[in-house]
Computed example of a mutant assay.
Amino acid sequence: MKPLKYKLESEKSDKKSTKYFLVRYTSFKGKHSRVRQYLGTTEPTSEALEKAIRDYAYTLEMKAAEKIAEMACTYYTIDYPGQQEIKEIEKLRFLHNAYISSLNSIELEVYTQQTKNLYIHGTTAIEGNTLSLQETHYLLNEEILPKDKSLREINEVQNYKYVMAYVEQYKGKVNLQFIRKLHSLIMNNIDMRFESPGTFRRHNLVYIGGCDLSVTLANMIEVDLKDLITSYYDAIKNKKHPFEQAVLFHYKFELIHPFSDGNGRTGREVLNYLLKKEGYPQLIIPKESREAYISALTLGNNNQNVEMMKIFDDLMLAGYAKELADLRNVVVPEKQQN
C-alpha cells in the first residue's frame, strides 16, 4: 500500500518549549486547511514518526474529511433540505479519493475490476438482464460465456467493455454527440424495435412503466436535451451542488426518454460521467436496490424531489459502506519489511 503523505511540524509554546504535530493538509476550491495530531514536546525519531503515522493516519483522514465536508457545504448552494446527507456525500468524496490513492498498482487493478463488475451487473440487471455477478465477471474478464443465456443478454454485458473504454478516453462536456455515442455502444448488436443504436427516436409510441407522465415529443428531443445540458452546466457554474444537479439531470433525462430503448442504461452512464468529472465515486446500484432506484424516480414524478434525493444519497453511501469500513486498514501504512 502507498502511504499517504503527512508532515511533521513544530511550533513554539508560551513556555518556549517546542510542540510537535503530525499534519494533514487539505484544500477545496482554492482554500487550504489542515488537521493535526499532537505528538509531544520531543522531536520524534524517524521510527517514532513512522509509528505515529500508523497510529494516527485514519484519525487524520476522518478529521480531514469532516473539514472538507464543512468547506463544501459552505461553498455550494444546496437546493433540497438534506444538509447532513450532503455532508456525508462530501465526506465520501474525500475518503474515497484517499482510499484510492492509498492502493498500490496491483490493489488498484483488482479494485477497479471489481467495481466495474458490480456496476455493469447492476445497471444491466435493473433492465432485466439475468446474468449473475459471477457470470458477469467471467464474461467480462475471462470471456467465458454463461450457459443458457440469450445472445441479447450476453451482448448487453459485453458492450460495456467498449462503453468503459470510450468513457475513459473522453474528456469533454456532455453533449448530444456524447449521448448518442454512449447509446450506440450500449445497444450495439441488440435488436431495437424502431431506430438503430445512437439514433434519437422519431416516434411518440412510448410508455414508461409505472407512471402516466408524457415524455418529450420526438421533434423536441434535441431541443429539450440541449436545454437540460445548458441548465446543468449553468447550475454548476453558479455553485449548485454537483451531486444534486447530477441526480436532477438523470431524472430529467429519463423523462425526455430520447431513445426507443436503452434510456436507463444510457442515463446512468451519463450520470456517472457527471459525477466522475466532479470527483465523486461511481454510483453503483446493485440488483437488490432496483426497487429503491425506481421508487426514487417515481418520487420525482410526484414532485417529491427531497425524498428522491434522499434515496440517491442513501444508494451512493450504501455502495461504499464496505470501502469506508476497510479504510482504516488501507490508509495505515504497513511497517517496512526487509
Rank of each mutant, 00 (worst) to 15 (best):
G40Y: 10
L228A: 03
L283M: 08
K239H: 12
F194R: 12
Y251R: 13
R36F: 10
V23A: 07
L274R: 01
T26F: 10
Y25G: 06
T123E: 05
T199V: 13
E288R: 12
A69T: 15
V215L: 05
T77N: 14
K276D: 14
M71P: 07
M187L: 13
L297K: 05
R24W: 12
K31N: 09
A52F: 06
Q245E: 10
K87H: 04
Y166N: 02
K19S: 14
R34K: 14
E66L: 13
L205Q: 07
K322T: 09
T136R: 01
I86S: 02
L205V: 08
K5G: 14
Q304A: 04
N155C: 03
Y138E: 00
Y76I: 02
Q113W: 11
N305M: 13
G210D: 12
I86F: 07
Q282E: 14
I208M: 11
N238G: 08
Y170V: 08
G128T: 06
L205D: 12
L248Q: 01
A235P: 03
A98G: 13
L145V: 11
L176I: 06
M187C: 04
L49C: 06
N117G: 09
L39A: 05
D234S: 11
C73D: 11
H137D: 00
E90H: 15
I78W: 04
I86V: 12
L283S: 03
I284F: 04
I229R: 00
R180M: 07
N159P: 00
F178Y: 14
L4D: 05
H183C: 08
H96C: 14
S46L: 14
A235H: 08
K147R: 15
K19T: 03
K87V: 03
T115K: 12
Q337A: 12
Q83K: 10
M308N: 04
M1D: 05
L217P: 06
I311Y: 02
L217W: 13
I53N: 02
A318C: 11
H137Y: 14
I78E: 05
N189W: 01
A48V: 09
A125D: 00
Y38I: 04
A165N: 08
H96T: 05
Q114Y: 07
K335G: 06
E195C: 02
